[in-house]
Design a protein around this nucleic acid. Structure first.
Lengths: 218, 218
DNA sequence: CTGCCACGAATTGGATCCAAAATCCAGACG
DNA sequence: CGTCTGGATTTTGGATCCAATTCGTGGCAG
């Protein structure tokens, strides 16, 4: 057993993976003692971890009422996507001039893997890695952390949306990604920002066509 | 006397006021025990408060190295203002249709007080209240919290900038505020968003003309 | 005189124990 | 029969104590 890493960081990693992976799900409560003994730690690092996750947007903490994974309404998700539409081109413009050749090769490799793979969970991971890697060169902490938070809070909806819509529209994502990647490789942040904004906007609008993504409509 | 308020929230309020008011200043370290006995509490609620303030962008926390108020470079502040330029019109558009008449009257009253008052600290408070109140109708938590964070991390630079530039350019702010307020009262979110973006953009550019705001550059 | 190593004080991270608040369930009353 | 109220249980918040890590200081050798 590796005991070296700080306890609270281990808890953060565990919970983040559980939430992003869909093991916990929106609206579900996260009890301190539960995860504490599940990870063999005291409740204190769990409390700190919950605060850190709240900063990442993955947890909502109400005093004396405990922590739960936030549940977003359709309109909220729509606005979050509008925020992404405005912020991510900015992050990309900051990043593109700073990306290394290794980063560019990795981006191309991820896109190849996305087109080859069919597994849903793997697609979500790769898509996330693709975009966040494209912002790696952005040195503005406020911007990168905000973008990461917006990805976090809508991760669940992306998963459900992809489940519902199936692989029929995958080719659109691939075409958009290819154009985006090409612009990045050409170090053309203007073109890249335009493709990116369009990519996000189209996703937002298609999301709006699937109300079932947004919970209880039995 | 109401002593009932949770200790960690009291600590949060105290530290936030101290940081926003300039009592602590960027780069300065915040020791847990110090504020603990200063507020008559244990170190534990202080630790939680520091985590919450980190979520608000007011504190930077490094493991085993303690908490300090973040110090932003000029380029970072510039990009944060670009983020505001893109996000705040969105928040305003969400908010304007929801504002009550009482909110509108309060906005007008704040603007009157801004134009009457000359004290710097008071101006900063009122300006902040003016804008954040104009977003009060925005019900999207992710958006409002992000906007608040962007205000927090640049509060110090606004203060220094206003100190350096003096009251010569105050009339510009007042003119912009009046046009913005008028558009809000007319419930014209398009006009309001344009005036707001211009207001933020002009401030950003004037900030760039004062490198002295960003520390050690004589 | 300068650079490096080691030791000690200061500071943060973690565990255990106790108090306060909220939730849940049962029973009584309208 | 439904609703409200009371207590019991669960869960979170806070205090104190102990361990681990970092940083500054001082001494020693080159």
């Amino acid at each position: 057993m590796t005991v070296a890493t700080a306890a609270s960081l281990r808890v953060v990693d565990h919970l983040r993976a559980a939430i992003l992976g869909g093991a916990i799900g929106p609206g579900e409560r996260v009890r301190q003692e539960e995860v504490a003994q599940q990870l063999g730690a005291s409740r204190l690092p769990v409390r700190e971890a919950l605060r850190m996750l709240a900063a990442e947007g993955l947890i909502e903490n109400e005093p004396h009422k405990g922590a739960r994974v936030p549940r977003l309404r359709m309109h909220e998700v729509d606005v979050v996507y509008q925020m992404r539409e405005r912020l991510e081109p900015l992050a990309l413009a900051q990043s593109v001039p700073e990306l290394s050749d290794a980063d560019l090769h990795r981006l191309a490799e991820i896109q190849r893997e996305i087109e080859a793979d069919t597994d849903l969970g793997r697609f979500l991971e790769l898509d996330r890695e693709f975009h966040l890697l494209s912002y790696r060169g952005c040195r503005i902490g406020q911007l990168t952390s905000t973008v990461a938070r917006l990805w976090n809070v809508t991760q669940h909806h992306r998963r459900v949306f992809m489940q519902l819509s199936g692989p029929d529209r995958r080719w659109v994502v691939n075409a958009e990604h290819r154009l985006l990647l090409d612009a990045i490789v050409r170090r053309d942040e203007t073109d890249a920002g335009r493709f990116l904004a369009g990519h996000i906007r189209r996703t937002r609008i298609e999301l709006g066509l699937h109300p079932a993504v947004f919970g209880e409509v039995p």
